[in-house]
Amino acid sequence: MKAAVLYSGGKDSSLVAVMLQRLGYQVELLTANFGIFPSWNSAAESASCLGFKHKVLKADHTLMEEAVDLILKDGFPNQGINHLHREVLELAAENYPVVADGTRRDDRVPKLDITQIQSFEDSKSVQYINLVGWGHKTINQLSKQLFNLIKEPTSMENNSDYEIEIRCLITQMGGADAAIKLFPPHIQSRVIGWREDEQK
């Protein structure tokens, strides 16, 4: 069965992809893009290093504009990112019977609550899989066993999360300072290949 994993190139979505593949799913990695900035490059590199098929899921730029409007209105990104994530899941569900992402128990965003998950699965007739029962420590331990990881300050060149295009659009609308206030600099982990001793 085909399964789409919404993919950023990080350890969470990489772990979901590996789990599904080893359970026999035909996994394809999807990185959403809204035509604001080519944010998929980093994810495509990580997918290639792991040997997964990767596609860009092209989404209408108006979805990003709606999300940014919510973020600017709220003064923080949570509601806007969650809105965007729900829309992207629905886009993926148009072509895949199974849709997955790397959201985990400790995440604040993006994250669907149980009612939203049930509604999504029922309305789109799909199975939705994530890491919601898994904590940060467990995922870190498993990821270190499987992947070579690099930790680095997040940037436009090394990140394929929604954040990149959101920051880009906010910068266009209100300047770089407005984007930095909402998304201060932080360190991220990115998958750059398999551990040498890992049997793929």
Rank of each mutant, 00 (worst) to 15 (best):
E90Q: 11
G102P: 06
D113W: 13
A93G: 07
Q118T: 11
Q188M: 15
S14Y: 02
T103L: 04
H186C: 08
G9L: 06
L29T: 05
Q118P: 00
R86T: 07
T31E: 11
P185G: 10
P153M: 11
Y7V: 01
M64Q: 07
W194G: 01
D113V: 08
S143D: 00
G24C: 12
F183H: 14
P153H: 08
R105E: 05
H85F: 13
S155F: 07
H83E: 11
S39I: 06
P185N: 11
S125F: 08
A93K: 07
V99K: 02
E152A: 10
D60E: 15
E152V: 11
I170L: 11
N78S: 10
L63T: 11
N33I: 04
K11R: 14
T138V: 03
N159T: 12
A178M: 14
D177H: 10
I180A: 10
W40A: 09
E94L: 13
G75S: 03
E94R: 15
P184M: 07
G193H: 02
D60H: 07
F183A: 14
L91E: 05
V99A: 03
Y7K: 00
L6F: 11
K137N: 12
N140S: 10
D107T: 13
D12V: 03
L146K: 00
L84Y: 09
P38E: 13
V109Q: 12
G35L: 09
N82Y: 10
D161V: 00
Q79Y: 02
R22V: 05
Q26F: 03
C168R: 15
F183L: 12
D106L: 12
E152P: 01
I81F: 04
P38L: 10
Q127G: 02
G174E: 10
Q199L: 09
A3L: 09
S42G: 08
F34V: 13
Q145M: 00
E121H: 09
I114Q: 11
L6Q: 07
L72R: 04
R108A: 05
T154Q: 14
E65Y: 03
S39M: 06
G24W: 09
R190Q: 03
T62C: 12
S119C: 08
T31M: 14
T171V: 06
R22N: 15
Y96G: 02
G193Q: 01
S13V: 12
I192E: 01
R86Q: 12
S48M: 08
A43C: 10
V5L: 06
L70T: 06
L70N: 03
L63E: 13
L91F: 06
L89A: 05
T103M: 04
I81S: 07
L91N: 06
I166L: 10
D177W: 04
Q79A: 09
E121M: 15
L23H: 12
K55C: 10
L15V: 01
L169F: 15
L112M: 14
K181Q: 13
E28P: 02
I192M: 01
N78M: 08
E196L: 01
C49Y: 00
G80W: 04
F183Y: 15
